[in-house]
Design a protein around this nucleic acid. Structure first.
Length: 465
RNA sequence: GCGGCUAUCGUCCAAUGGUAGGACACGAGUUUGUGGCACUCGGUAUUUGGGUCCGAUUCCCAAUAGUCGCCCCA
């Protein structure tokens, strides 16, 4: 292997240096996951399993029907409905052109696709509200950090066709229940109402006028924000801007009658639910389709440090109509699964604990190995979980494995036993072992397991209830 | 997309301008048909590409990735 350093003079290429002797290690190509995308390893799966089970249980219990939509949609679906000016669309969306020259995008969220599906499949004929449960990966080309990936998994609940604020409350209730069921006890729900298109328009004019009057006291960024999106000035962390916001007009004070009532009822329902909520008049959300209710759920208690948004959502009464469907009010929310996992670990919530086998099958010799395969499936058919390590040869290392797996009994099937149709049952605590007829093994095990109070079969959620 | 910090076995942590060390984990063994404890042995790492240098894992630059802040959000 050698390297060439080339210098180009006119149209001639001249070799100026030739290096041969450098013997390098074979360059192995190491593939790496794409930036911002992570593997979910076996060690984390119990957390994911718990999230899966809890969300499916809640979907069932609260009457949400499952809907799966494609990861890929027409780019315009998102651009038009989430809003061309939003960060999600403007700088975070994966957009590309297919071989067929279609402009498509990896979905940055689930709601737009759900609405598309709702309209396309004529779901408005279903009895209202139409409650939809959807989960899946979403994609945002953002700069990765802890709890922020380019591919992440969202759990989404939407309710279509009902404008009553009780649905807003129910959706928030499901979100709260989800955290509780996962063992995340400390969280806060922040709610706000950003009004309907009518009152929001008036409010924004009012707000712009207000910012204008305070223009000299705002930072550079906020001067830009007041034009593009006056609501965003509320988010600024600069002290002087914060000072300016304290006397700014608030959305809740400038709602029309309908929106005001809606918000008032929602708050009354929330009081009834006994969920920890707070009104945050600064809460805006980064998607243009929201109307009236918006909310976010934050981890942790009072202080804001090291916290993250676990989920959020709101009402989008105009979206379906805007997309060309029948006028259908709707409300929904999404949770981020990766963040839930992080939070579960942080608060030491219990992950799902799968059943561990209480029996280990050890084999010695070729004949025994053959018989073991059949025996294993025999036990499996009888609902008895068995661990094994067929790849290992020695009895010693198999027993070591059995010990590590903390099993109650080890079955030993050696050459001798394989020939005369017997098998050894060894009690791992007492070390006592007994040779029995292999034909009767299943019955004997069942009896033993019963008397030893070892669970064979269990169903449903096992913790964090 | 902008700025800061970081990068060593599978994991956690050392060290060094001249042979990279430990712990945990993993594997093999201590009467090749009997586990836990103990002991012995073993494999595996300086992210990549340039530069400075006799020599770079160490210093410099860049790429990549992670992380933090901004922006935004799940």
């Amino acid at each position: 292997m050698y390297k060439l350093k080339k210098k180009v003079l006119g149209d001639k290429t001249i070799q100026t240096k030739k290096v041969v002797p450098v013997i390098k290690k074979k360059k192995k190509q190491v593939f790496q996951a794409i930036r911002g995308m992570k593997d979910i390893l076996p060690g984390d799966q119990p957390y994911w399993e718990q999230i899966r089970r809890v969300s499916e249980k809640l979907a069932r219990d609260y009457g949400f029907l499952r809907l799966n939509t494609p990861i890929l949609e027409q780019a315009d679906l998102f651009i038009r409905n989430i809003g061309a000016g939003t960060d999600i669309v403007e700088k975070e969306m994966y957009v590309f052109t297919t071989r067929g020259k279609d402009r498509v995008a990896l979905r940055p969220e689930l709601t737009a696709g759900n609405c598309r599906s709702f309209i396309q499949n004529g779901m408005q004929i279903l009895s209202k509200p139409v409650k939809i449960f959807s989960v899946g990966n979403v994609y945002r080309y953002d700069r990765p950090q802890e709890g922020r990936q380019r591919e992440h998994f969202q759990i989404n609940f939407d309710a279509f066709g009902e404008k009553d604020p009780v649905l807003d409350a129910q959706v928030i209730q499901v979100a709260g229940r989800m955290l509780q069921c996962l063992g995340i006890k400390s969280f806060q729900i922040q709610v706000n109402s950003i009004g309907c298109p009518v009152c929001r328009k008036e409010y924004l004019q009012l707000l712009s006028a207000y910012w204008n009057s305070k223009k000299s006291k705002l930072c550079y960024d906020c001067k830009k924000r007041m034009k593009n999106n006056p609501l965003r000035v509320f988010d600024c962390k600069e002290d002087k801007c914060f000072q300016a916001t304290t006397s700014a007009p608030q959305t809740v004070d400038h709602l029309c009658d309908d929106c005001r009532k809606h918000f008032k009822f929602l708050l009354e329902y929330l009081d009834e639910l006994e969920l920890p909520y707070a009104i945050n008049s600064r809460l805006v959300r980064g998607l243009d389709y929201y109307t009236k209710t918006v909310f976010e759920i934050w981890s942790g208690g009072e202080e804001m440090q090291g916290k993250m948004s676990l989920g959020g959502g709101g009402r989008y009464d105009e979206l379906i109509k805007f997309m060309g469907g029948e006028d259908t009010p709707a409300v929904g929310f999404a949770m981020g699964a990766e963040r839930l996992v992080l939070e579960m670990k942080k608060v030491q919530a219990k992950p799902y604990k799968s059943l561990q086998p209480k029996i280990f099958l050890a084999q010695l010799g070729n004949l025994a190995k053959k018989k073991s395969l059949r025996l294993l499936s025999e036990l499996e058919k009888n609902g008895i979980l068995v661990a094994e390590s067929f790849g290992r040869g020695g009895l010693k290392s198999q027993l070591r494995m059995a010990n590590k797996r903390k099993v109650k009994f080890t079955l030993i099937l050696g050459q001798k036993e394989a020939l005369d149709g017997s098998i050894i049952i060894k009690d791992m605590e007492t070390g006592v072992q007994e040779t029995v007829n292999a034909q009767k093994l299943v019955d004997i095990i069942k009896k033993r397991i019963k008397s030893e109070n070892v669970v064979i079969y269990k169903n449903g959620l096992n913790n964090n209830k």
